[in-house]
């Protein structure tokens, strides 16, 4: 009895922890909803399958707990002797199957949309290096490298003595952020120069491996201006933890302006050479 209750407590405190999401805003516990149509769809799928699992779990574990409470020897029960039942077995094969089909359909739809990179307004080519990113704007001719900002870099050395809490956006800040316009379909091409990396910005709902010798494609459409941070998501050696991604989403005018500055800058650079 005592044991079962303790088991119950642990089980449900786990589930409660999930349900208490808003109360734990500081302790981020869930996937960000993100700022693109796709990221929202993905969030929806995530929550759907999560609740389906919770429901199935509650059912199965509920029955199990009921049985643990009531069908125990200490209560003087005698074990029944049944050990098969074809109808039940068919039912619990077919019902999960149907649940799965009903989840597979929306998932497949979203997936098909995610892989449709046609008709993009803008193409960004991202190349992974050990350990930084190179960004090339194929239409606008802008190109630069982006790596961990120097403050984080100092703080992250072994026993640096610098408190990470004191560094703004510790490990999630770069010297040169990627600037992208909002409300444009942006096609992102990934590749790498040495080993495999992966370009991931959670709020944009995209992640793709950057593979040497091959180009992968994905797309995004950012709906709100803002700064979105991400990290390399494929083990790429010693400093895998230290090649973050920062996307600055701006309005179209600001983007144009930025491009002009950049091309001006690079022209000036070439002129001075």
């Amino acid at each position: 009895m005592r044991h079962a209750r303790a088991g119950l407590t642990v089980l449900f405190s786990g589930i409660l922890l999930f349900l208490a999401t808003p109360a734990l805003a500081e302790w981020a516990v869930n996937m960000p909803v993100g700022v693109t149509p796709i990221s929202r769809e993905v969030y929806g799928l995530h929550m759907l399958i999560f609740w389906v699992c919770v429901a199935i779990g509650a059912g199965v574990f509920g029955v199990m707990l009921w049985s643990i409470f009531h069908h125990r020897k200490s209560r003087g029960v005698k074990a029944a002797s049944f050990h098969e039942h074809h109808m039940v077995e068919v039912i619990w094969t077919v019902i999960p199957f149907l649940i799965l089909v009903s989840m597979a359909v929306p998932a497949a739809k979203t997936l098909i949309r995610m892989e449709d990179t046609r008709d993009a307004d803008l193409t960004l080519k991202v190349t992974g290096y050990q350990w930084m990113w190179q960004y090339e704007y194929l239409e606008d001719g802008v190109s630069f490298y982006s790596k961990l900002d120097s403050e984080s870099n100092k703080a992250r050395q072994l026993n640096s003595g610098i408190d990470p809490e004191s560094v703004p956006h510790y490990l999630l800040n770069v010297d040169n952020p990627v600037v992208l316009p909002v409300n444009k379909k942006i096609r992102i091409l990934t590749t790498a120069n040495d080993v495999i990396h992966a370009w991931w910005v959670p709020a944009l709902g995209v992640k793709k491996d950057a593979i040497p010798g091959f180009i992968n494609e994905m797309w995004t459409l950012i709906e709100e201006p803002g700064i979105y941070r991400g990290q390399c998501a494929e083990l790429c050696g010693k400093d895998h933890a230290f090649m973050p991604i920062v996307v600055k989403a701006v309005t179209e005018e600001e983007y144009r302006q930025w491009v002009a500055e950049q091309t001006g800058k690079s022209e000036a650079e070439t002129a001075s050479l």
Binding site: S67, H71, K73, A79, E89
Partner: peptide
């Protein structure tokens, strides 16, 4: 998930109306 579910359900059904000790 389907065959794995079958296993889980079978275990629960084994407990059902048993005389369990822990």
């Amino acid at each position: 998930a389907v065959p794995t579910g079958v296993k889980i359900f079978n275990w629960v059904a084994t407990m059902w109306k048993g005389a369990m000790t822990f």
